[in-house]
Design a protein around this nucleic acid. Structure first.
Lengths: 236, 236
DNA sequence: GACGGCCGATTCGTATACGATTTCACCGGC
DNA sequence: GCCGGTGAAATCGTATACGAATCGGCCGTC
């Protein structure tokens, strides 16, 4: 996850330190969406001046993790409903493609590991914990797309996961039924991969899987909304 | 294109100004890949101190337009062959999806405009100018995916175009035959859209179109390389 | 009592300053 | 002649300082 070279002398610049520190705290939900990031305060907490903090925030801003308003300041990005939908749709496409591209590069061990994770997902259904489920779910999918030989695509997929942030768990807390369905789809996906199914089929399955999660979320949040176009042009 | 609010008083901060200025100069190939960006020099040219320049460069760094090495400095990112391939592959997927998602939202005028651009592309084949061809080509595709209702996807597609930067023209300069084929595929794509073809077909056509450009580039640059997997899991 | 303007506190934006690190040319020894 | 050390120049990293913009509350007026 750490892209910076890990110098043995731990010589991360303060700017880098601020960046990683903020990013972690956002990922850990210690800084929740909407939380205001005051430059001077952050600088104090981290024991540095504002300059490195500003740079860190610029990077986070470019990644979409924080929003910045001139002369007003930065705050942790809120993902509203509409953004959530758009990000999920994008992730469906990217992750679907990445999973397909990775399929032929998966080792038997990878598949075994994915199966094990899905087993744990199934087991977790007993005493359902959205947080745990989401974490395992991420790890499951990570195993499947990590072998994608296109690093650019991997970076985008990961960035989209981060963007969705903790909001993603809410789907499973809101729509519990989706979890059961989800693990079944995981098995199907694994089956396709093991069987060496056409990449198009794998891509379609992976994409639909995520789209279904999005649909579950939407139909729960906006039950009135017309189903309209599914957004995913899978063949009929 | 400008995401910053256009204040009537033109009150862009220096940091923003530096960012846009550098980005434009990179896009215009005034700053070519590998070009070193010395903070003090850039600051002088723009009539500001180094602090805003640093922030601008952080943003560009996060976008992948410049690479930054600690205690060494920034330089305009070089896209090597492998990155070019990966970005094109990613763009094929993203643009294909965006084009499909946009298809149902295109007005008759949009289609007319796209046709007109393709006409100009065809006309330009007479006295072939890779630069002009690339520019028109970008505009053609922009018309087709701009109506995509997913802003996140649009942002990623645009960012990928920028990333490829001027390198993208090289395909058409290196493999002149590809240009003719390309405009024919444009017509086919337009036909599908006008006919209200299934979104899956449109997506497949748009994706294959770009993949073919990539393949043309690769087969010219690396004629020895085995064709291997096409990378695009289109149904047989 | 409501509204609008004024003022101070807060916070951002940028310049300047200076120590730290890298780079590279030069030079003496092997 | 080649190699490794040494110093200065270039450049980066960060702290500090101060002007500018924003926001919220207070006060006077209607």
């Amino acid at each position: 996850m750490a892209r910076e070279p890990v110098n043995e002398t731990a010589a991360r610049s303060k700017s880098q330190h601020a960046y990683h520190s903020l990013k972690e705290r956002i990922a850990a939900e210690e800084l929740t969406p909407g939380h205001r990031l005051v430059l001077a305060s952050v600088a104090n907490e981290l024991g540095m001046s504002v300059v490195p903090v500003r740079e860190a925030i610029r990077r986070l801003e470019a990644e979409g993790l924080v929003t910045f308003e001139r002369n007003v300041g930065a705050r942790v990005s809120m993902i509203d409903d509409s953004q959530y939908r758009h990000s999920m749709e994008t992730l469906a496409i990217l992750e679907g493609a990445a999973t397909a591209l990775a399929a032929r590069h998966l080792t038997a061990d990878d598949v075994r590991q994915a199966r094990e994770l899905n087993r744990r997902l199934i087991a977790s259904l007993e005493h359902f914990d959205p947080r745990l489920f989401t974490s395992l779910n991420h790890r499951f999918h990570s195993v499947l797309f990590a072998a994608c030989p296109n690093p650019r695509m991997l970076a985008l997929v990961e960035s989209e996961w981060v963007r969705l942030g903790h909001l993603r768990d809410s789907t499973f807390s809101f729509v519990p039924g989706r979890a059961q369905e989800s693990v079944r789809e995981h098995e199907i996906l694994l089956g396709l991969i093991e069987a060496g199914a056409p990449l198009a089929d794998i891509e379609r399955a992976a994409r639909s899987h995520r789209s279904a999660t999005l649909a579950a979320y939407l139909s729960h949040e906006h039950p009135d909304e017309a189903p309209g176009e599914p957004g995913v042009p899978t063949a009929p």
